[in-house]
Design a protein around this nucleic acid. Structure first.
Ligand code: MN
Ligand code: MN
Ligand code: ZN
Ligand code: ZN
Lengths: 141, 141
DNA sequence: GTCAATACTTGGAATAATTCTAATTTGCGC
DNA sequence: GCGCAAATTAGAATTATTCCAAGTATTGAC
């Protein structure tokens, strides 16, 4: 990434953190950059491993703290597909998730215009989470 | 419940367990009946508490085992909404879940005919899990 | 720039949810 | 009824996450 790009990213990260009452720290910057680098769906553990490579002293507690801040700033989505560790997704476009029951990989899938589900009277939907389970192309028998 | 009804339920439970290679045990019968009694979305812990009322010696490990067997027999659905304890749903009709972010209750919501999501080439969907987050009528401000 | 207030980071302890273990008991085909 | 695989049990172990208390860094006021 070019210097100018990085500076811009960081100033917008700072802004986003600030408007949500968070401080800008090297750890938060780094965790965010780690997520943007490889746009998959790592667990906190996996983020920790990747973050440590260039910031060996970062702690697991901080990774959780950073992920939490990023989620609260809406720079990252937290996804709960299967039971077990939560996963984090840096793709903030509206999309749903395909979970391959065989290789356990998670794929982004574009959503149709709007999933028209008739809710009973009085219910107010804020957000739809669509998880599709099945086999990815690699694992199709 | 009338005696005849119960007998019928149990013989169909036995059959379902048998065809999936499971044995019929009083614990499995009881856990299943506990789920059918109050058709909500309890956690394993909550099932344990309810099951203990009429079967005080049942253990947590057995509750997990029973729930697992019932899920594998497709008599019960396991739902993973938010992070935290898994929930169990005895309603086997196709439906999706509304999770109230305020009171944390889970409601069954009927699905539209079929959520037409165009999957990329090669992906094979087996099951859609639609979770809707929002406010229930009680909690609407 | 200095300073104080407060937020953040850290390692380790604590907790929550679930799974594993090993001894005992039970269901079920013969 | 008998034998054996499967199920139950209490408790230990594991996994994922949160909490804690002490030290450190960031920020805004001056
Ligand atoms: Mn995603
Ligand atoms: Mn349900
Ligand atoms: Zn796959
Ligand atoms: Zn509610």
């Amino acid at each position: 990434m070019k210097m100018a790009e990085k500076k811009h990213l960081n100033s917008s990260l700072l802004e986003r953190l600030a408007t949500n009452g968070f401080r800008f720290t090297p750890q938060r910057e780094h965790v965010y950059s780690v997520l943007l680098e490889k746009r998959d769906h790592p667990t906190a553990e996996e983020v920790f491993i990747r973050a440590k490579r260039r910031m060996p002293d970062i702690s697991m507690a901080t990774v959780y703290n950073c992920l939490d801040a990023l989620v609260k700033c809406r720079l990252v989505r937290q996804v709960a597909l299967e039971r077990g560790a939560a996963r984090f997704c840096p793709n903030m476009q509206e999309h749903s998730h395909f979970y391959c029951d065989s290789c356990e990989q998670v794929f982004d899938v574009n959503l149709p215009p709007e999933p028209v589900i008739g809710l009973p009277r009085g219910f107010k939907a804020e957000r739809y989470d669509i998880a599709i389970h099945g086999r990815c192309p690699e694992c199709k028998t």
